[in-house]
Design a protein around this nucleic acid. Sequence first.
DNA 1: CATATAAAGGATAAAAACATCTTTTAATAT
DNA 2: ATATTAAAAGATGTTTTTATCCTTTATATG
Lengths: 143, 143
Amino acid sequence: MFSTSSKYAVKALLYIALNAAEGKRILAKDISGPMNIPKAYLSKLLQDLSKHNMVSSVRGPGGGFYLTEDNMKVPLIEIIQVIDGDSRLNSCLLSLTNCDAEKPCPLHDIVGDSKAHFVKNLQENCIGDLVDGIKEGRSVLPI
Amino acid sequence: MFSTSSKYAVKALLYIALNAAEGKRILAKDISGPMNIPKAYLSKLLQDLSKHNMVSSVRGPGGGFYLTEDNMKVPLIEIIQVIDGDSRLNSCLLSLTNCDAEKPCPLHDIVGDSKAHFVKNLQENCIGDLVDGIKEGRSVLPI
DNA sequence: CATATAAAGGATAAAAACATCTTTTAATAT
DNA sequence: ATATTAAAAGATGTTTTTATCCTTTATATG
């Protein structure tokens, strides 16, 4: 449903949120291990996220990644869009081009509502919300 | 959300359902054009679907593809699974391995219900249902 | 200032998805 | 029977996604 890259990105951001702060940064290699993400690939993803203000970083000794309050508030859908591109969740379910709302495709009929809810929830929630869920024991960050 | 290949497959099956019957078969090349699917690639997909009893075919002059009543009744989810493999819709939304229901991942919390609905609708509907929607004017088969 | 550290950036490689081409097999019509 | 048609099957090519490696830049510390 999401690309491997998007899953990596969200997992990494969650791990950073749970294990770092403005004062206490975390290294790419220390996310890579516990989250089971190839280190070099993760670095590229974090680079991308950093360019889009979805994660913060400092170089050099004592450096690493961390999340600001603002980083925490980025809607999940934007993270997915940065990594997977617009079309993955936006395009018509059946065609490669966009589905016209006036002329819905046959899958629109069947799963359009579920998809709309799915997307809406990704729009209305951010990394911070997921972190809350973990801290309150409602969910668990998987390996 | 679905792979390009899955979209091709569903579109092709719908086009066959609408334009062929036991007596009146349709050629791969006559689906390829109107549905905007590369002919050789479509042939491979139909071959796959044929092996799984999701489409019927006869070779030689006057041959081609058509759908039996049974072909029409295959749940959409099975078509997706044949083309994309099990994991695309089945795997955890966050991890690469499966999400434990006892320990839901943070995305489960947020979009689990929408995803479950989405999958359920794909389980409960078949090509025949989509065809009905088109014939009744509720939806339109896109190019 | 020199050195070490760690992210940023660029180049390259491997795997998967998408696509094409050629040969073979089955069915029909002449 | 023979020729023709069209799907099945196999081999190969291209593009995108995933992954690695090497160099450069920024920052901290002795």
